[in-house]
Design a protein around this nucleic acid. Structure first.
Lengths: 159, 159
DNA sequence: CTATATACATAGCCAAGCTATACATCCACA
DNA sequence: TGTGGATGTATAGCTTGGCTATGTATATAG
C-alpha cells in the first residue's frame, strides 16, 4: 500500500538533502554543485541565452550571471553575442566543459559506489526508474517555467 | 536491462541538484535546507553532542556550531550541558522544532505536488521505494560515519 | 524621435560551507 | 598532585551560491 504522495515528496526532499551532503563529502575537493548543474542544463539544451539559462536552472538572472562568469573563467562554456540582438549573450558549452562534467560524474559515482555496494539488482533498477521519473518531472517543470516563449522548443531528451 | 550503477548514481546526483532548485523556488520564503536537515537528523537520533551531530549531518564541526546557533535562536532545539563532561553540549530538539519541521515538510510537499500531479500509481510506488532505499543507504553510511576528524571512508562490506 | 520594454550587469546583502586555530576541560601518568 | 597531551566546542576569516534592487545598453512602439 502506497503512502500519500505528500509524505513521499517530503521524504524525497529530506533524503535528497542528506544524500547531497554524503556526495559532497565523498567527492572531496571536486566541489561546485551549482556549476555542474548549470553545465548539465546547458548540455541538455544546447546554446541558449543567459536569461533562459537562469529560468531553466531555476535561479535568478544575477545568479546565472555569476555562475556563467565562473564557467567562462574555467573555459567550460563560451559566450557569443547574438548578431540579431546586441543585448543578449548566447551561452554554449565547450568540449572542455563536457569533459569536465563527465569527469565529475565519474568521480562522484566512484566515490558514492561504496555506499551502494551490494545493492540488490531489483533495487538498482528501482533507483534507475526513479531517476528517470524525477528527471522527467523536473524537465517538464522547466518547459512550463520559461517565461521566454522562444524556449518552447521541445527540450531534447537530456539523457 | 539495467544501466551501470555508476551512471545511475551520476544521474541521481544530477537530478537531485535540479530537484533541489525546483523545491527551493516552489517553497518560496520558507528556506533554510541546512536547518531542516539538521533538525531532521536530531529528530531521528534524540539528544546528542554537537560533534556527533556534525558527523551525522556530514558537515564540519564549525558548521554544526553555526547551525545549532541558528536553531537555538529560533527555539527549535535546546542545548544542555553534560553533567559528566563540561566540554560537551548536548543538543536536543524541542516540540516547537518538531512542529516547525512538520510544517515545512507539509508546505514543501504541497508546493511540489503540482509537479507530480497525475503521476501513475506505479511511478508513485517506485518513488516511494527509491526513497526508502536511499534513506537506508544514507543512514547506513551515517552509522559507519567517521568517528571524528578525517574524511568518512565508508567501511565497505562488499567491495 | 522619444518612451517604454527587455536583456544583462553590478552592487550589496546573507546563509552555509570550509580550514586553521584558540580555548576549555578531561585524563593518564609520574 | 600536578602537568602534558587528547578531546570537544568556539572563533576567525574566507569562498561560493543564493537573493533583491538597481543601473546600463539596446530594441521596439507610437
Amino acid at each position: 500500500m502506497s503512502a500519500d504522495l505528500h509524505v513521499i515528496l517530503g521524504d524525497l526532499v529530506s533524503v535528497n538533502h542528506r544524500l547531497t551532503r554524503v556526495a559532497a563529502r565523498a567527492a572531496r575537493g571536486t566541489e561546485s554543485p551549482a556549476l555542474w548543474r548549470t553545465l548539465s542544463v546547458l548540455r541538455s539544451t544546447g546554446p541558449i541565452r543567459l536569461g533562459e539559462l537562469a529560468d531553466l536552472s531555476r535561479v535568478s538572472q544575477p545568479t546565472a550571471t555569476k555562475l556563467v562568469g565562473g564557467l567562462v573563467a574555467r573555459g567550460w562554456i563560451e559566450r557569443t553575442s547574438d548578431p540579431d540582438d546586441a543585448r543578449v549573450s548566447l551561452i554554449a558549452g565547450t568540449p572542455a566543459g563536457e569533459a569536465a562534467l563527465a569527469a565529475w560524474r565519474t568521480e562522484l559515482a566512484a566515490a558514492l559506489l561504496p555506499y551502494f555496494a551490494g545493492l540488490p539488482a531489483g533495487d538498482v533498477e528501482t533507483l534507475e526508474r526513479a531517476v528517470a521519473i524525477l528527471r522527467d518531472r523536473v524537465e517538464a517543470s522547466e518547459r512550463t517555467a520559461a517565461p521566454h516563449g522562444l524556449a518552447a522548443e521541445p527540450t531534447v531528451s537530456a539523457r
